[in-house]
Structures are given as structure tokens and as C-alpha cells.
Design a protein around this nucleic acid. Sequence first.
RNA 1: GCCGAUGUGGUGAAAUUGGUAAACACGCACGACUCAAAAUCGUGUGUCGCAAGACUUGUGGGUUCGAUUCCCACCAUCGGCACCA
Length: 818
Amino acid sequence: MEYDHKKIEKKWQQLWEQNKTNEVDLDAAKKPFYNLMMFPYPSAEGLHVGNMYAFVHSDAYGRFMRLQGYDVFEPIGLDGFGIHAENYAIKIGEHIRDVSMRTEANYYRQLKMIGNQYAWSHKVETYKENYYKWTQWLFLKMYERGLAYRKKSLVNWCSKCKTVLSDEQIIGGECERCDTETEKKEMKQWFFKITDYAERLHRNLEGIDWSEDVKIIQRNWIGRKVGAEVNFDVHVGGLKGKVGGKVDELNIFTTRPDTLFGVTFMVICPEHALINTYKSKIKNYEEVLDYLNNIKNKSDIERTDLNKDKNGVRIDGLVVVNPINKKRVPVFVADYVLPNYGTGAIMAVPAHDERDFEFAKKYGLEIVEVVSSTGRMEEKELVVAYSENGISINSDLLDGLKTKDAKEKIINWLKESNLGKEKINYRLRDWCVSRQRYWGPPIPMIKCEACGWIPVSEEQLPVRLPEMDDFLPDGKGKGPLNKIDDFVQVDCPKCQGDARRETDVSDPFVDSSWYYLRFLCTEFERKPLDKERLEKWMPINMYIGGKEHSVLHLLYSRFVAMVMCDIGYLKEEEPFKQFRAHGLIVRDGAKMSKSKGNVVNPDEYIKVYGADTVRMYLMFVGDMRQGGDWRDTGVRGMYRFVKKVYTLLGRVAPLDQLADRGEDDDFKRLLHKTIDGVKRDMENLKYNTAISKLMVLTSKMQELGCTRDELGDLVVMLVPFAPHLAEEMWESLKLVKDKGVLDQLWPEFDPSLAIEKVMELVLQVNGKIKAKVEVLPDIMEHEAQKVALENPKIKGVIGDKKVIKMIFVPGKLLNIVI
RNA sequence: GCCGAUGUGGUGAAAUUGGUAAACACGCACGACUCAAAAUCGUGUGUCGCAAGACUUGUGGGUUCGAUUCCCACCAUCGGCACCA
């Protein structure tokens, strides 16, 4: 019996498709289990081994759950809209539509080849009308609730991709897609108000079962900070002499309201409205304007360079009064204060903030210490800002209070005097969803001169993405659709007058923010989602995917699910009950890259060794969370194993013909320990050790032979890893069962058969192993001591030294301390 | 700078609550089969040592009868954030 993977895998893949083995009746399912993997954004190179790595791990889990009796729904689709695909099409000079059709075919071919139990009848492609129609619907829902809005603000601009991008798509200052350094531009764009959900997004992280590191990344990105908002009065005048009346208020956010007595100046950002409002009162307006212009000309990198000197300009003519001690302090404009965090203005406490300290030193400003570690004034002069918590000093009512208590007291004081309040601030900013590109869903909005922005009505969806030959972005701030008059010109839905369509398309991350909901509802043509379906199947039981989406897809999806929950489509606001991030797969210790030419092409390996071998190798190469190191020799080793398993069919015999299977059945013990151990490993996604346990069992079966039922147990356990092989062997075994191997239940574990009859007791002296003896597993402490002290080796080590004590660990060891 | 992860043989990696470090696999060596090779099977394989034995989980400390595991300090690599008040 030669193992012919080509024949076997083809045969079963065809049978699965014919018999719809992997389809689930979503309505009839009794024990729903939604097993999701991040659907790929297809590239022309085809399925990367990195995708494959994630997919087979996810599939193994789904198959395992099926063996636990669940109705597992495992959908797949393509996230095909987007800049990535479009850029590639531009590069090779073909139309994106043609390229997409080609990559689609290629992807589905490859995805079928790896043998995952996909519910093919539920596939979605984000770039098909029957999908993006509903992405547009989602936009309308957002708009209805005031969660989609237009605003002019500083946005990220990629000069190579010629579009704006969201904050989440800027990775270390570079475009997520093309690694070009991005710049800030002031533009009017569509945003989703994710900041309205900041608190819920932050709070819920507590209760969801996700990889801890991903939760931390999200938490940091959301950046929740508890502090206070304080209102300072702004007056016209100078620091000395007469001062005019209050003309305005300057609101600031601080996380250290307890340092209010230490405020010696204020700083506003260059974009702050105060400057323009009081330009006639500002004595050195020219100088201020010079400074602002100077900053405008600086690039982003220059402006945010941390090593750069802090500089700014005093706004002469305005002063601010500290509400707590009525002290007049100067106001500066400086670019170390950011326009898009807090209120764009700060109270400067140089003694307790590094940046303020640096600024104060440079401009010779007063530094007043109001916190110290001891609660007493420090003897020596401050050389660095003391930004830790401590005890308040020089702070009147706060003196002697610990930072935590001082904060609380001052916030109460602010509230009572109506000068401020507790305030929670987030780093998270709204999600910019406009893209000045072609390959995406047109944003379904119409601009009428008379009526303003009017949403396209739901019945009019989809707003079809028009065919166009020249789909290249021009970089002038409008999408390519702007070139098509037929598309742009439209009657206003309200007044029937002349109006223009929005020509930007939406961010591809909008597409992927809800695909998992659509998977459950693909057969509904007239509605995007079916509430019953969602109630039955959501939230997703297990989601496996890459860490690179920690903030991006995983954050956006949570936000969109919350909105869907608020609208009433979902019962629970968190879409992914469990999420596990997988690691990166490298090759021979180095990152795979096209330029290095070390990219693993899964097709080749599947051709030579078969999908089962490649699947198993990917799961054996290391812990899923850590990723793995691809080695060709390792794949060959796995191939050896797969073949070895297959040859076990020739080792099947009736029990009485098997040698070495006496009363005390060691083999039976191993089998049951394996059944138990592999199950535990699978539950914890420790596939590598699960496989190693199966290898041990396989070797033993090969050595001793096994019964039909025993091999059947192994074959069932192999299903998650090597489904084709399992099917083939199951068929050969001709076991009388009413269902195929994919729908068997996990072999039953009998703990009584797994009990050891003898054990090896480790004998240590002072924690070092000196001898091992075979004893009964339930040996009592005093017996063990007797055995140990009579052991010649131990005797020799102890000699005439005195035994101080003996520590006995049942089932493990005895340690003698001398 | 802040937050997080990782560091174990020649290699990929294992190690329930602290209890036999290196399971499983790759590679290598030797052997069997073969005219030969491949494939397959068997044996060995952390380091030093002929051996007895000693040493060994990034480095240095600590707690403990006992530490890959817990604590402290440091080093290296990778990832996230970064003038966020």
C-alpha cells in the first residue's frame, strides 16, 4: 500500500464538495460553534504560507470542535477591495477588475487545496455588488445615528497612494500599504465617530477572552487617561500692573490636577483659536505669526522630533489667572502642545513635567515645586522634573496629601467652585474613512448646493462602482470617480435640483469590519442581516488571526459590532468571544520576503508532499502564538510520519494475535493517555505537543501492531491535522459506524486504563539526583524513605553525615537533606 | 523614554500548581537491507571526561530542601506607542 497523497487528497476533496460534508444548516444546528479565521486580502502572488499557517491552525480547532459534537460553521471569503490590490494592478498595468478575478480564482483554488472544512456556500467577496451594497448600507446606518460625519482636520496623507489614511493605518509614521512616510494635511473628510465608543471599547477589554498582548495594545491605543478639565480665565493685559477684565476662558486637560499650585505658565498649540480671536490684543502678533508660519513649513518629522529643542513664543498682551491662587501667568504658543489631544492647551507645571521643565529652563520661567517624595521641600535645586507621585507641598489646602488624595480633593474643589471637573481623555481619534481611490465602495452620499449632504436612500443601493479604464488616483484630493460626469451628476434626492455624488470610496477596513456578520446571512438578498441568525450564532466562539490587526481590524470590528448592537441587530456588543493571535512564520530563522527570495510557496510543497503533510508541519513547527521556523528538512520529516501512519493499516490484527500484549497492557495505557493528552493540548491550541503525542503512539503501534478499533481511535484524533488521510484510512478500516470519520466523537478516555502500575521514584540528596528506583505509584512516605536510605548509592553519598530532613513528593521524588 | 513578548543542545522546539531539563522532530554518526543509491528500519547523539563524575535553560544576585518556572538588577532581539499634558 503505497501512500499516494495526490490521489487521496483529490478524492476526498471531491467527495466533500459533492456531499456538502462541510456545510452546516445554520437554522437547524443544535450546538452552533462559529469558528472564524481572518479572511485574506488576496494578492497576486497567491496565498502566502503565512495565511496558510493561520488557516490550518484555525481549521484544526474547528475540526476538533466538530469531533466534540458541535455544529461548526467555518466560512471563508476574500477581502478584495483596497489599495493593496489596486496598487499591484497599477504596477503591472492591468485593470484591477481583471486582476481581481484572476486572484480570486487562484485563491479559491489554493484554499480548496489545503483541505479546510469551509462552508463554501457562504463565501463573500467584499468587492462584489451583493456585498458592498450592504457596506454602503452600513455607512448609511452610521450616518443616521450621527456616527458618520464630515469634518475638516489634519489627516494623514500618503503621497504615493495619493489618498488619506486613518491613524491606525500609519505604522511608525509610514503608510501601512506602501511604507511611504506620510504627512499631515488639512482636508475635509468623512469620519466614523469611534471616539463615542472609546469608553466601551476600553471597558469591555476586561471581560473578553483574548490574547493578553493584543488587549494591551488596544488598551494603549485607546489611551484612556483620568484627569481633570480646568478653566482658566483669560485677561487682556500684562503680568504686572493693571489688568483688564476677563475676556475668555482657556480650558485645559491635565492628569495632574494636584499640581495646580505649581502652574507658572500656560501653553497653547499653534492651531489654537485664541490666537486668531485676540489678534488685535496681542502686542507681538507679528512675532507670533512668524512662529506659526515657521511651523507650517516644517515637516511632520521635524515637528515631532523628540530630540528637538522645545521652543515657542510668549503671547504678549494676554494673561491667564490661576483660579486657585489668583496668580497671573503668561501664555505661550508652542508646538510641543498638540492640537488633537485634550483641548490643545496645557497648564505648565515645570517642576513636575519634563517638557514643561525644559521649556521653562530655556525661557527662564519660574519653577515652583508642589510635590515631593518626602512631603518636605527638597534642599537641592531641581535638575530634572519630578513627575512621580508624592506628597503635596506649597499647595495650601493640599499640603501633606498623597497625590491620589490631592487629586480627589482638588477635583472636588474645582467642581464646587464651578471651575472644572473630573475628565477622562482618550488618545483614540475618530476613524477617517474616506479614500481618494477607485477600488472600494463609493460612499453613498450626495451633495446638493441647496440641501447640503443627503444620503442615498436604502432602495437606491448599491451605488455602483462604475467601470472606468483610467482608475489611477491623481493626488489632487479627489477620488478617480470624480472624472466620470455620469457618475457625479445626479438629482438631489430631496429637491431634485442639480447635485453631485461623493466621489471618495470608503476605507477597505469598513468592508472587513462586518464580514463575519454577513457570512451568516449570505442567502438573504434583500437584507444585509438576519436577526435570528445573528442571535443564534453570534458572538463568534473562536477567532484566530494575526497580531498586525490588533488595532485596525480588531478595533474597528468591535466598534461596528457595538453600533450593530445599539441598532438592535446584535444581542451582545462584543463580536469575538475568544480571540487568539498567532505568531509569524519565518524561514531558516529569517523573515520571508520577495526581495530575499526565500518566500515559501505552499503550492510546491503541497504538490510534492500533500496538504496533510504541510498542514501538520505548520502545526508541529512550534507554538501557534510564537510562530515558527520553516525548514525544508522538517517538512520531509513530517512526510515520513504521515507515510508511517498510513502503513499502520498493514499492522492491524486481532488482539490475540498481537505480541507483547499481556495482562498489564502497557499499550492500552499509552493509548488512553494519548486520548486524554491530545484532547487537552487541542483545547489549549498546543498542536505541536499534540502531534508529538500522536507520533509516540504511532511508533508504538508500528512496533506492536494494533487492533482495528485502536487504529480507529488514532485516525479520529488525526482528523484535525490530516483530514484526507483520516478519511482514507477510516474507509479502509471498514469500522461499522453510522457516520464518517469527520463526524465521529473524540475517542472515549477511560482514566482507569491510564493508571500507571509502577513508577520511577527519583532519589535526591540536597536537590541533586543520585538514584532512581522503581516502586509502586501509591508508595507511602515512610516506605519511600526506607527504600531510599537502603539504596547503596544513596548510602554512599550520605556516608556518615546526618540526615536533617526528607521531603517526599508523592508520585515524583524523595529529597534527602544532609 | 514608556508598554509588552522572547532568550533552553548543532537546529526547530518540549517541560500541569516550583519537583527527573532537553519529550517530539530535524541534522549528524554508525549499523541492517542493496551491486550501488534512494527509500525504509535499528542504535547512538547537551557539554567536558577513558571512566567515576562534574557542569548546563541570556548574565549577575536572591528566595527555597529543590528554580527553565517565583523575586530583584542587567544584557540582547523582536513588536506596539511616542512632545498624548
